[in-house]
Nucleic acid binder design. Structure first.
Lengths: 121, 121
DNA sequence: CCGTATCCAGGACGATACTG
DNA sequence: CAGTATCGTCCTGGATACGG
C-alpha cells in the first residue's frame, strides 16, 4: 500500500506512461471523445490541423495502452468507431483540467513571451 | 466574456501553450519546484535522467513563458535559484493530477500493453 | 470511409567535452 | 556551481499519393 511508482526515478515505468500522455495529440483525442464515440473522419474534422497519419498513430498507441477501443462495424463504406475505455475516461479528468488551464492562461503566456522578447527598454 | 480560446482550432494560440505544457520535461520541473525554489544542480539530481542541456532548455522556455523566475545570486561558486511564479503555481494543480494519474495507473497501462503484444491466443 | 505507403524536414534529445 | 558548445541520432509529424 506504499507508493510503488515515482516519475522522478529515471527507470520508473511511470515515465513511459507520462510520455504517452504528453504525446502531441493524446490530449486532443481524449478531450474530443469526452462527449461519446466518434468516427475517424469525425475526429479528424474535430481536431483541426491533425493529419490522417498522426491521428492513426495516436489512436493505435492509445488503443495499445487501453485508453480507447476501436470498433469496426464493417459495411461499405467502412464504419469504425473509437470510444474511451474506463481507463481513458479516468484520464479525461486531469486532461480536461490541462486543456482548461491552457485556454484560460493564453493571455498570461503571450504577455510573458512578449516581455521576454523585449529585453531592451 | 465568452470562451475566447479553443484548443481544437488549428490556429488558436492555446495550441502553443498546450505544446509547452506537453514538452517532455515541463511536468517534471513544475512538480520538482512544488516544495520551493531549487538550484540547477538540485533540479538535475531530483529529476533523474535529465541532461544539463535538456534542463537548461526547459528552464529557459518556462522562464520565457512566465512559469518560473531565475534568480542569479552571484558569488563564486555561482548560485542560481529557480522558483515557480504564481502562474507556474497555478499550473502545478493540473500537472500534479497528471503525475498522480500516471503513477497510479502504471499497472493498468502495462497490462494493456502486454495484451496488445499478445495477439494470438 | 478509413486508412496505408513513401518521402522528407525539423526539432528534440543524449553524449561528450569544455568554461567562467 | 552553472552552465555552453558541438555533434549526431532518433523520432515526430507534415505532404502527398494511393488502396480496400
Amino acid at each position: 500500500m506504499g507508493k510503488a511508482y515515482n516519475v522522478m526515478a529515471a527507470t520508473c515505468p511511470s515515465r513511459t506512461v507520462l510520455h504517452r500522455i504528453g504525446a502531441r495529440w493524446t490530449v486532443f483525442v481524449v478531450n474530443a471523445l469526452e462527449a461519446g464515440p466518434m468516427r475517424f473522419t469525425g475526429l479528424k474534422a474535430h481536431i483541426r490541423g491533425i493529419t490522417a497519419k498522426a491521428l492513426t498513430e495516436t489512436l493505435r498507441a492509445m488503443e495499445a495502452d487501453g485508453l480507447l477501443v476501436r470498433t469496426d462495424l464493417g459495411g461499405n463504406p467502412p464504419h469504425v468507431e473509437y470510444a474511451l475505455t474506463d481507463l481513458g475516461r479516468s484520464l479525461l479528468v486531469p486532461l480536461r483540467a490541462v486543456r482548461q488551464w491552457a485556454e484560460a492562461h493564453v493571455p498570461d503566456i503571450l504577455a510573458a513571451r512578449e516581455r521576454a522578447e523585449a529585453p531592451a527598454d
